[in-house]
Design a protein around this nucleic acid. Structure first.
Lengths: 321, 321
DNA sequence: CATGGTGATTGACAAAAGTCAATTCGTCGC
DNA sequence: GCGACGAATTGACTTTTGTCAATCACCATG
């Protein structure tokens, strides 16, 4: 890692430029280097997280719709991305926002727990570098081959890298072939420890997965299409940390779930701040299920999703308690 | 407050520019305004704390000398400013650094407690704007006329303003003319409440004051020169939150201290993170006293001060425990 | 309905920052 | 000791950003 041009001079340049507000040529003069070098160092400082530039995410949580969501579902904060073409590439807006919200939520010394999924990968990609101290990033559940850019473990590590944090991977697959093996593995000290550590986390980052032909669990072969259909008739509605949940947000009682190595739902709910991020509008039912299961306290999603959720909510519960 | 050009467009411009990395002309195009406006909005966004640019203070805490200080005095983190002309104006380096460290230490939702003194004023001045949530800034002790730019209460309010926080002032003078009055006032509910609230703070920011002809307490007439001389013969060494301490860091048993409305030392020590900032090299003995009294856990000062403190420390205690 | 004033907005210019090919520096192998 | 290689640095050029006086839009007032 360590840059040849003694990390320290980069730091000094960044301090003079950003904190004292000198111009690049003044910094150059003071440090006896060329202005071009200053420009280079400053870029490195930004990339290394020595300098942190963050924009308040209030813009997205300040709307009335967001407030209504918070009230309706008892959430702490909700951030909504409108369809109003603010972003240069609409698809990237949710991950970008989520990355910013995440960084805003993580404090020094925190232990954070991340699940994986396409959305989480995108968030990791959009996340800028920060120079945190004493942060640990732990994986929330076992691993799986990924059809996307990162593998789950790489994803954890990538987030850890951006935060200058320690990354802790799960040394187990997500799904095993037999219940017995899963049970035995869960009792392995190294796995047990990680599972137990989850409830001690300060915050969590995760998505709810959908259950259709091209959802993650299917694509990487953890579940066959036939099995999926069978589970759906049993009430399968969404996926939380690999585990299948029903419409009321409880664990579906099935063989598949029993063969899984993942965070216990009570452990997840013991984490004080839990950020859920949903970008696809098709995840309406899964998200509803996740709300029913009180899986999260903070939410990043689209305005249209929020509108849909509220409409359905007030319809089913016309008089608020 | 609220700017005419709907705060929101400033936010959007900042988001597109800083988070998405568009150029100003691209932002202008997307928002249908001139580039000049974008430049203007961006400045406002920075000034309003919508955008936060911070530089890691690691540069100042990374040296060996800082480590030695931490070890020698059991401090959590020590930041040192060298005499090596890094800063454009050496005198401003301590307050600037302290302001940055302070911002780094304050977390959303925190209650912070600030004392006052010239150094604290300078820190308030050097502090950049930030958009924190749920932060409360409370005054640590009663008020006094100030010979400097801000009055103590303004100073609290100024820091609160920069953090977008709520400021809570002490509605009492620092020193009263009689013990009885001080005692009575301390029992007033509104004062009692504030005094009790201090130990519930998450962090504190303060200085140690020196006791000489041009120190704060003298300049604003709280103490006469003769009285000061008398107290010095009794062991007066420094000032913490208005109160006079002896070389071993305990409250000097004197009339002056008894006439004071200020935070109880145990209440101060109950605050988990306490940042002490000392810029003047003449404050050697007062700082030593403050160390003896375990008043702080984090320290910002000069390298030369650190050297002096360490020399004296190892001299008096050659074998570490 | 003109009028003055306030504050936002912009066009045009100046200043500052970004970039990159060319150069220098340091180091290693021979 | 010498050449050769890669990394760091820089000078010179281009692009981007900051600034400010001039203009425009809006509103309250006579």
């Amino acid at each position: 890692m360590a840059y040849r041009p003694a990390e320290q001079i980069i730091h000094k340049a960044a301090w003079l430029y950003y904190t004292h507000g000198l111009r690049q040529d003044e910094v150059a003069q003071r440090l006896n280097i060329s202005r071009a070098s200053v420009a280079l160092y400053l870029r490195k400082a930004r990339e290394a997280g020595i300098v942190n530039i963050s924009t308040s995410t209030h813009l997205f949580s300040g709307e009335r719709l967001a407030r209504q969501m918070e009230d309706a579902f008892g959430l702490e904060t909700v951030w909504l991305v409108g369809e109003d073409a603010l972003s240069p590439s609409p698809a990237s807006e949710i991950p970008t926002l989520a990355a910013n919200v995440f960084l805003e939520m993580v404090e020094n010394g925190n232990q954070v727990c991340v699940a994986w999924g396409r959305t989480v990968y995108d968030i990791a990609d959009a996340m800028s570098y920060a120079d945190r101290e004493g942060v640990t990033v732990v994986e929330m559940c076992g691993n799986l081959g990924s059809p996307y850019a990162y593998r789950p473990d790489q994803c954890t590590m990538e987030i850890a890298r951006r935060l200058n944090a320690k990354g802790l991977n799960f040394y187990a697959p997500l799904v095993l072939s037999t219940e017995e093996l899963a049970r035995a593995l869960r009792e392995e000290p190294v796995i047990r420890e990680q599972l137990d550590g989850i409830s001690a986390c300060d915050m969590a980052l995760f998505t709810v997965g959908a259950l259709d032909a091209d959802s993650h669990v299917i694509k990487c072969g953890a579940l066959s299409l036939e099995e999926l259909e069978r589970l759906k008739t049993m009430g399968a509605t969404g996926v939380i940390a690999g585990q299948i949940i029903t419409a009321d947000g409880t664990l579906l009682d099935c063989d598949y779930n029993r063969r899984m190595i993942s965070a216990d739902f009570d452990a997840i709910r013991a984490i004080p701040r839990r950020l859920m991020v949903v970008q696809e509008d098709e995840k309406f039912e899964p998200l509803q299920a996740a709300i029913a299961g009180r899986f999260f306290t903070h939410l990043v999603t689209t305005s249209s999703m929020a509108t849909k959720l509220l409409k359905h909510h007030t319809a089913s519960e016309p008089t608020p308690a």
